[in-house]
Design a protein around this nucleic acid. Structure first.
Lengths: 235, 235, 235, 235
DNA sequence: CATGAATGAGTGTTCATTCAT
DNA sequence: CATGAATGAACACTCATTCAT
């Protein structure tokens, strides 16, 4: 390691590296500035999402969030009274609506119950599990102990609605005679646990274990869905 | 879901864990110092397990571990050269041994491959998943990104051996014509993911969601195992 | 030997070194905060130089440096990422600059090689050896084994350039026929060792040995230089 | 880095690694044991010398000294009330007598003054400078500020006698008309400083600077001595 | 005398949070 | 509103020193 790698700079300078847009025409573009102000929370939340998902709650430094959002550390605390509050806001901002959209699509699905189950699982993966946003699920599970109210919020807004979707699909299969009369609650877990495991793994051990890299999530989901379908099959 | 079962005692406890060995035969007992010395590692490991499971790796302070074990911070470092080493010792004491024991028992199992799978899953739960020690698995997944060394250690010492156990059971089923020739790696995930999900849930959302309490993990595991067995069945 | 000369002020001083800039023109001065900010590095470097020279590298606590500069420990790390970097900055500020300046002056020197040697030695003493900053050389030699990185840095930034200055002067004397064709590397040591010995002594035994006080370093250097000149003389 | 490099040892054991000689014949060899006890301080001082020279005062851990001497850490403190006292004892034990022997040999020297000077310098190097013991000179200069009484002791017992030897050689050269009537005190420094510099360098920067490795100390001393002889020559 | 387990003050470094400007 | 300089409480880890045995 070269000791003079700092290239002779005598000391660190904190001088702002934030590039604030130079308002050369302050008088004729007041709206721009206002909009900018209004966007601040959103930009901060976006930056925070990225970093929380990437590094987790503890390892994310608020200064890095602020920098990525293009504001100073102090400004972040202007909008969010603490790191914890920022975290909560991120979760609230980024998880609802995904479920609602899913529900709408399920309603229009044509096909057997077992096809529906497989389709739901794959959709869940493609629309959520495979995206950055799924990091929130991992994060919530990881930090639930430290933020119990957050866990509660997540359960109410996300988990229960999503579970209900699967529950009704299973029930439909049973009612139509396609599935045996299994315990729906238990089978629900058989459907959801591989998905949640996939997300946990992807955001935790995944990056460390290249050995598991050859596994294709969609292929796994498909096989698992078919395994379940066979297992549930009434015939 | 009774996911917080731990023999009835919740692992979050503030009661003193300093266990003075009961001297029933004071005259035969070795020197007090010596006796303490031999007890130290065990006491420290127990305290460390409690706190790691309760708070996670990063949030657990070594001094708190030492204090809970009734010694000073310096004493802890007398037995474990670093916090990471302490953690690794906790894993070895509470997880690695369990895997080894499981492997030995598996070798003596008499029965079909599908019976073996179900038995393994149930044993895994009873011997590990249902205990406080399973918090380690949750911890590792939660903090793997921040402590890749620990994740690597856990993967090498625990995940790979455990996976191999399941892998060989599946392969045996296929070789004996009991199972169809499915992709073993994918099926492995179908076996493990419900177990790991159960553990994650128990140590994260579980305590916050009393609504899932009515679910019995063993019942779920049994049903899931049978679902898989049916799904895998060659006939 | 008056080796502890430093312009009269001993470098071991407890008097406050927090130098509030005298505001002769309060109205023109920038904001108090800004002013402090600009002064910080200098104040910290000054405090660090004092303490490093007084106590050595290992024995100097960064908090003490910060306190002497009138700031908190955290503030120091705002300007210097580590104790080593602080030290390197001190070296750059107090030693490297001196070498560069010396090199510039040497380039303009008119006179014989032997005159140049004597002039360089005297300048080295007046500009560096006799000042507080020369404590850095003593420190580096004293602690090189414990902090090889610092020794390496010092060697690269200070020793090699300074040696090259002397080397070229010797070579010039040989090339011009003024000196005999001696081994330049060995003669370099004959030039440098009295200077470095002087500095070591001043910052170690010097304060303890008033008996050597009657020796004037400049007189010694002059005589040594002339001794060498005679010894090297080609005639 | 392999995380399991500790080979699975669950925790560190402080169990004694000190090999105390097993006294199988305790009853017939009581003297041996007594001698052993009497040797303790000597063995500790020897170990301390090695380590202090090798690592310096601060970086040497008392436990390492004790271990090398074959006793426990507690035993060391039985003989030396503190690390500092151990340090002082080491210096006191290891520097006298060398000078006395040198003085005796000087008295028998036949030859010119300049030959004597060169011979003394070379002998000083061979008998002291080149040996491990010279590390003490480095150590004393390095730690003199922290141990002023040590510096005083060293000056009285070592430096002054050694200086007197050189002083009288120079004076003899002047009295016999071999040398010019130079200032003896200054010339003394011209003789000693290269030697002390050599020792300082050897024990500090030397190990870090392979570039200077090609320099042969004896060759340097010879050339320096001849340079001085020419410089001092009356002719 | 000798031991070695135990201590606890101290060290460099980090980072969420505050607040004067 | 926005800034960023300043803070200070933590934290993992070290090691000279003590003292019960």
């Amino acid at each position: 390691m070269r000791l003079d790698e700092d290239g002779g700079r005598p000391y660190i300078t904190n001088q702002s590296v934030i590039k604030k847009p130079v308002n050369t025409t302050e008088s004729i573009a007041p709206h721009k500035r206002e909009r900018r102000k209004q966007d601040r929370p959103g930009e901060l939340l976006e930056a925070a999402l990225d970093l929380f998902v990437e590094k987790g709650f503890a390892a994310t430094r608020v200064e890095e969030v602020a920098l990525r959002a293009g504001v100073s550390k102090g400004t972040l605390f202007l909008y969010f009274p603490s790191k914890e509050d920022l975290f909560k806001a991120v979760v609230r901002e980024n998880v609802v609506a995904t479920v609602a959209q899913g529900a709408a699509e399920v309603a229009q699905f044509k096909g057997s119950a077992s096809e529906l189950i497989e389709w739901m699982m794959l959709q869940w993966w493609r629309r959520y599990g495979a995206t950055k946003a799924s990091g929130i699920s991992k994060l919530v599970m990881s930090e639930a102990n430290n933020f119990p109210d957050l866990a509660d919020f997540f359960r109410t807004e996300v988990i229960i609605p999503a579970d209900n979707l699967v529950r009704s699909a299973l029930q439909r299969g049973i009612d139509l005679g396609e599935f045996r009369a299994v315990n729906v609650e238990l089978t629900l877990l058989s459907v959801m646990s591989p998905l949640l495991f996939l997300v946990m793994w992807k955001h935790s051990m995944g990056p460390c274990c290249p050995s598991h890299e050859q596994i294709d999530p969609e292929e796994f989901i498909s096989q698992h869905a078919r395994l379940l379908a066979r297992g549930l099959s009434a015939t």
